[in-house]
Each structure stands twice: as structure tokens, then as C-alpha cells.
């Protein structure tokens, strides 16, 4: 795009309030980046919810993430990365006025989006089949006031999770063996030992829970009136210092989980409070991937639109702003997935 050109005549796509094509292009791009910032902040809310639940209940996430299929997650990552590449190539083609390459690249990018969504649909279907779906209707882990809402589904789902975990454990052991990192048997032993440690901790934790949950009826009233007076109102500084460094349970458990190395946290390893929070992992998973999937769909719509315009010959080296902006949007969708993938599928 040349500025000189804009000075001499008035291109059709130059809006009246801009002086030059250059200024218009830069404004559009700046506006798009500002918009992308709002997208990042919006996803930031979900990442915050994720961080809070994972940070405070790491073993719950460690347990629950085994229900997700790393292979499909990685596959989708590759699909999105390749589609980002074709999009970037498309922008290049638009800059150079290579119309056919542009159309081809946009088509490939669009197909990448289709591929991503198909895999996502397969994954979602799997979640439905194994009762780990969004919402209260078909999630075996969903609980309210301390009661599982679908106790009948729980056994099958837990068994399914155990099976998946076992498969992964074998794969990991296999890799370790290949790399000569650990002796498999030794690893099994370590695993057992740490499980015993866990059991001890859980006994203590459960004893605590039992004391709290001893009341008949719903195990723990959520009514504020039942809070202990010390906890009613803001936790004063005195609270923090008087309770002589009693580390919160979550931290102890977190430390245990990280010390446990390759240990796969199993359903039995979780205490009763943690069991109640497994549902949260799936809800957060669905909120994050759902909102991301919605963005993929919007991106596909936009790509479809510029694909149509590109095929009609609307773009030239002097005017390719929409291609560039849609490209930025598509890359952002990719960027978010780059973070979602390790955070959801690769919890260690």
C-alpha cells in the first residue's frame, strides 16, 4: 500500500474522516488490537477462576484432568497452529495481491476451524457419554449441599477415569523405561509408598471433616449463621498470627501432591471435600473451551466472509485491512488455545 497513491486520488475505501489510507489502516489495526485486549481480559476472568480452583485444590485438578484426552488436545493444538500459519500466509498473499493463493489459504484456514470444531464435538460427546458434561444434568460428580445428584452414575464414571489413568500410567512408565529415567518397578513402589502417605494424611483430613460433617442431614450447612464466631466477619490479623502457622489444609495437600511425583491421584486419594470439587473442573473446562469454541465459530464466520470477498476480488495490495484484522483475531483464538491446552490437558 503506498501513501503516495492516496495523496493523488481518493480511493473508494478511504472514509471521509481519514486523510490517508495509511492513517485509516493504522487506526483500524490499533482499534483491532484494543479489541483483542478486551478479549484477553475477558478470558482472563476464566483463567482467574481456573487459577483459583487449581491453586487451592491441585489434586482435584490432577485427578479430573485424566478424563481429558491428551491426544485430541494435542491434535487440536496442531490443527490451530497450522491454520494460524495458513492465515498468516493468506495475509502475505493479500499484501502481494496473489488472489488465488489468498483464497486457497483462507479456505485452508476455514477448514482448520472445521477440523478443530469436529474434534471438539467428538470430545464433548465423550464427556456426555461418560457423564462428565457441563451443567447439573449429566455430570456424575455434580453435587449439591454435599450430596451427589446422580449417585447411580458415579461408579461407572469413576471406573472410566481409573481406566484412562491406568493407560496413561503405563504410557508414562513405558517412556521412563525408554529414557532410562526410572526402573518401572521402583516407580510402582514409590507410587505405593506415596499412596500410603496420602492415606495417612487423608485419615487426618477425614477425621477433621468428619468432626465438621458429623451433624445429621446435609453434612454441612451453608447457612452463614452456622459459622463459628471467629470466622464471622473479616479474618483479623490476630487470627492469622494466633493460629501459629497452621498451614491451610490445601497447602499440605498440594505439597504432598507435588512431592508424590508421578503418582496419579486416584478417586480414593481424594478426601470428601475434594470429591465434591471434581465437578468444578469439568464446569470450568466447559466454560473455557465453550467460550473458546464460540470464538472459533465467530472466527470461521469472519473468515468465510473475507473468503467470499477475496474470491470476488475485493482485496488488493492497496486494501487488505479486513484480511489483516480477521487474521489478528484468528491468531488470538490460537493464542488462547496455546494456554488452554497445557492448563487443561497437561496437568502434572
Amino acid at each position: 500500500m503506498s501513501t503516495a497513491n492516496a495523496d493523488h486520488d481518493h480511493p473508494a475505501h478511504l472514509a471521509h474522516h481519514f486523510d490517508t489510507v495509511e492513517q485509516q489502516f493504522d487506526s483500524a489495526k490499533l482499534g483491532m488490537w484494543v479489541f483483542l485486549a478486551t478479549e484477553i481480559l475477558m478470558f482472563g476472568g476464566l483463567f482467574c477462576a481456573y487459577a483459583v480452583y487449581r491453586g487451592n485444590h491441585p489434586e482435584v485438578f490432577l485427578y479430573a484432568h485424566h478424563f481429558l484426552d491428551t491426544f485430541w488436545g494435542a491434535f487440536n493444538t496442531v490443527v490451530l497452529l497450522v491454520s494460524s500459519f495458513t492465515m498468516a500466509w493468506g495475509v502475505r498473499a493479500a499484501q502481494l495481491g496473489q488472489k488465488n493463493i489468498l483464497v486457497l489459504m483462507l479456505l485452508l484456514t476455514f477448514l482448520g476451524g472445521v477440523g478443530f470444531m469436529v474434534v471438539k464435538a467428538v470430545e464433548y460427546y465423550g464427556k456426555w457419554e461418560h457423564a462428565t458434561f457441563a451443567g447439573p444434568w449429566n455430570n456424575a460428580f455434580f453435587n449439591e449441599d454435599g450430596q451427589f445428584v446422580h449417585p447411580d452414575k458415579l461408579e461407572d464414571t469413576v471406573a472410566y477415569g481409573a481406566k484412562k489413568m491406568d493407560k496413561k500410567a503405563h504410557a508414562v512408565a513405558h517412556v521412563d523405561e525408554e529414557l532410562g529415567l526410572h526402573d518401572t518397578d521402583a516407580e510402582r513402589l514409590v507410587e505405593k509408598e506415596t499412596q500410603e502417605e496420602h492415606a495417612e494424611q487423608h485419615e487426618a483430613a477425614e477425621a477433621q471433616d468428619a468432626a465438621v460433617a458429623a451433624a445429621p442431614g446435609p453434612p454441612l450447612p451453608t447457612d452463614h449463621s452456622d459459622f463459628k464466631p471467629a470466622h464471622n466477619g473479616p479474618g483479623g490479623l490476630s487470627d492469622m498470627f494466633m493460629e501459629d502457622g497452621a498451614a491451610p489444609e490445601a497447602f499440605v495437600a498440594a505439597a504432598a501432591a507435588s512431592a508424590a511425583g508421578h503418582t496419579f491421584v486416584t478417586w480414593e486419594d481424594l478426601d470428601n471435600r475434594q470429591k465434591g470439587l471434581v465437578s468444578q473442573f469439568f464446569q470450568i473446562y466447559f466454560m473455557m473451551t465453550g467460550l473458546h469454541g464460540l470464538h472459533v465459530l465467530i472466527g470461521m464466520g469472519l473468515i468465510g466472509w473475507i473468503l467470499f470477498r477475496a474470491a470476488m476480488g475485493a482485496f488488493s495490495p492497496a486494501y487488505f485491512t479486513p484480511v489483516d484484522l480477521v487474521g489478528l483475531y484468528w491468531h488470538l483464538v490460537d493464542l488462547i488455545w496455546i494456554f488452554l491446552f497445557p492448563l487443561l490437558y497437561l496437568i502434572h
Binding site: 491453586g55 449439591e144 450430596q147 460433617a213 454441612l220 452456622d226 459459622f227 487470627d239 465434591g276
Partner: peptide, 17 residues
Amino acid sequence: TAAYQDQFEQPVISSDA
């Protein structure tokens, strides 16, 4: 959230469930 976690009472799954 980490700092108030220990003061935070949530429903716990009852043992029999």
C-alpha cells in the same frame, strides 16, 4: 483465596455418598 481458604466452610460430600 489462598489466604482465606482455611476459614472457608463448604459442603463436604457426606461419607456414605
